[in-house]
Design a protein around this nucleic acid. Structure first.
Lengths: 111, 111
DNA sequence: TTGTTATATTGCAATATTACGATGAATAGT
DNA sequence: ACTATTCATCGTAATATTGCAATATAACAA
């Protein structure tokens, strides 16, 4: 049916799933990596950098902005995008609260 | 068109996207969390634990197994699932190589 | 005002994902 | 052999995602 039954799950589980979706496309990862490399602000040279059509890039940028991992400010005619450090850390922590739970668990006495 | 243009991206970007997809559904997160809680092996009581139909759970388990984050061994009539520590760490590292790149970057001199 | 440039939005076609009923395969107990 | 149990697979319907052409919007320049 294609419709995730969110009501069955905890807020934390749904939240992590929503954030993971952002990373679930190579174009969005490429955008993030480009912003990390440029370090300061990159106005939308993503189109030639990545090779997807302008509306497609714009769509990916919007999703990244919606989740709060990047921010964009209008700079005259163009828009200046950069990483949102607050959002970035929040998302990093969200993943690592799951990842770090294995340490307290078994390591080789598994099946 | 619903078809990701993987050829435009690096192997690393495509790999991370593929792994992130696994986390992009609350049921799969719930399965992982249950396996973390049980610590040893869980035979498939996921159906009543989570509340999705048995074929749906089976499908999610297969995806988790395919990516190598869990493993399942046949135990008589039932199957014993547990976290694969090797795969877990590999995936954790994959995410953190991206996450940790912000430290060397700007923190508040952004736009 | 008119034209240009940069980005966002809309609408739509193609493909992917999610969920489940029906069915199949394997094992254990009687 | 028969039955019950557990799990996987198949087929399919409903929904989501991806990508782009066409169009809209907004800021600047002449």
């Amino acid at each position: 049916m294609g419709l995730t039954k969110t009501s069955l799950f905890t807020t934390e589980q749904n939240e992590l799933a929503k954030v993971a979706k952002i990373f679930a496309h190579p174009a969005r990862i490429a955008i993030l990596q480009h912003l990390l490399k440029i370090k300061v602000c990159a106005n939308g040279d993503f189109v030639e950098e990545i090779g997807l059509a302008q509306p497609t890039i714009s769509q990916h940028l919007r999703e990244l902005k919606n989740i709060g991992i990047i921010q964009g400010t209008i700079e005259g005619v163009s828009v200046c995008y950069c990483i949102n450090p607050i959002g970035w850390e929040k998302i990093k922590k969200l993943f690592n609260t799951i990842f770090d739970q294995l340490d307290t668990c078994c390591s080789d006495d598994c099946c």
